[in-house]
Amino acid sequence: MIEFQVTVTVEGGLHARPAALLVSRASRSQSKITLNKGDKTVDARSILGIMTLGVSQGDQLLIQIDGSDEEDAAAQIQDLFHQEFAG
């Protein structure tokens, strides 16, 4: 299992468009990918789940990835947050 934290830098937080990009990226993986904010945990393949987290710009998320391609999945998700979602 791989765990890492990200700070959401995208303006407006994880609203519909960035959430859809995250779901798309997570859906490419065979691994289980979860997002944790506070005491809430959701499947990264669920746009509704992501939207219910109410993630705002500046929030920190703990991302957990567990499965056969977890290293590649972690790199893809980190790239999404650090490159595509960067200010």
Rank of each mutant, 00 (worst) to 15 (best):
I65M: 01
M1R: 11
N36W: 03
S46F: 08
L61T: 06
A16N: 03
E11K: 13
S56G: 05
M51K: 04
S29P: 09
V42K: 08
M1K: 12
A73D: 02
Q30L: 10
D59I: 03
S56R: 11
R25H: 08
S24P: 09
G38L: 04
G87M: 13
I33G: 10
S68E: 14
I47N: 02
R25D: 08
I63T: 01
L48C: 07
I77K: 06
I50A: 01
D79M: 14
E70F: 02
A86M: 12
E71Y: 07
K32L: 13
M1I: 09
E84L: 11
R28C: 14
Q64D: 03
K37M: 09
P18A: 03
S46T: 06
I65V: 05
T41C: 11
S29V: 04
A74V: 11
R17S: 01
A16T: 09
Q64T: 10
H15G: 10
E84H: 12
G54D: 04
Q60S: 13
R25I: 11
T41D: 06
I65D: 00
D59N: 09
D79H: 15
I47C: 02
E3M: 05
A16E: 05
G54K: 03
L22N: 01
F81K: 04
S24G: 15
L35H: 07
Q64S: 12
E71T: 10
P18F: 02
A20N: 01
A74L: 09
M51H: 04
G87R: 13
N36I: 14
E11C: 04
E70H: 07
I63A: 03
T41Y: 08
K32R: 15
A86Q: 14
I77D: 06
G49Q: 09
I63D: 01
Q64Y: 01
Q60D: 11
S68P: 07
G49F: 10
